[in-house]
Design a protein around this nucleic acid. Sequence first.
DNA 1: TTTAATACATAAGAATATTATGTATTAATA
DNA 2: TATTAATACATAATATTCTTATGTATTAAA
Lengths: 123, 123
Amino acid sequence: MYICPMYSSELIKGTLKTIVLKLLKEQGKMYGYEITQRVKELTNDKIQITEGALYPTLHSLEQNGELDTETEYMGKRVRKYYTLTKQGHITVDLKVNEFVDFMNTMKFLLDVELKMSNVQSNR
Amino acid sequence: MYICPMYSSELIKGTLKTIVLKLLKEQGKMYGYEITQRVKELTNDKIQITEGALYPTLHSLEQNGELDTETEYMGKRVRKYYTLTKQGHITVDLKVNEFVDFMNTMKFLLDVELKMSNVQSNR
DNA sequence: TTTAATACATAAGAATATTATGTATTAATA
DNA sequence: TATTAATACATAATATTCTTATGTATTAAA
């Protein structure tokens, strides 16, 4: 079975918004740094979201009305928590469905079988 | 079942090289325009490779030593056929394996089940 | 006390796509 | 037969989205 250390940067492109929205749907409320750590953890370091990619994305999603924010202070350190708006809940389902459809198309195009064993090893 | 008309442009980003190399591995020898039509056909118009994206990619793969070219004339109209080099054959397997691994990771991350029915409908 | 981790942010640059434009041949249609 | 659509290549301007680098500041660990 093929194991790769980290994905080439092109691959992750275009999936960041989907990942962020989906995580927020599951967790309800997260702050930026938490998202980077959670993704790193869940993917065994295969996907590492850089801060330079994440924060602009979060700002853009907020400006687009997909996310709401609330600032909390842990002592003197600030945390900006993000939650899905009503629109965000609609968008996340669309995005995830689109990605699943895309994966099926790519699977057909690349003529490959997904191996479940590999998924389990990510836990 | 979710059916989408065409994927948002971000999604396709980063997969173009993999698609092109894999098609060339299967078909042996193809020209640019043929690749765009084949992908459109195989994906029921869901993935439409623009010429502005394809040609620079082909040139870059050629310069990188992944592809060889031979020009043929059909009457007065030119066709540039592309084939995989030795290096290209190595790269395509790496790329496809990496993408399969990536799909498994994303599947786990997005916590979704791939439906086979959707794949069949692409034929 | 220095380094690592936490937590935010933005700017410069690279990569890769879209959109538009250009040339030219050949087939189809009005 | 004249015009449009399809075939077939190519590149330039622009947009998007990422990487890499830099910056500030707090808190925990070595």
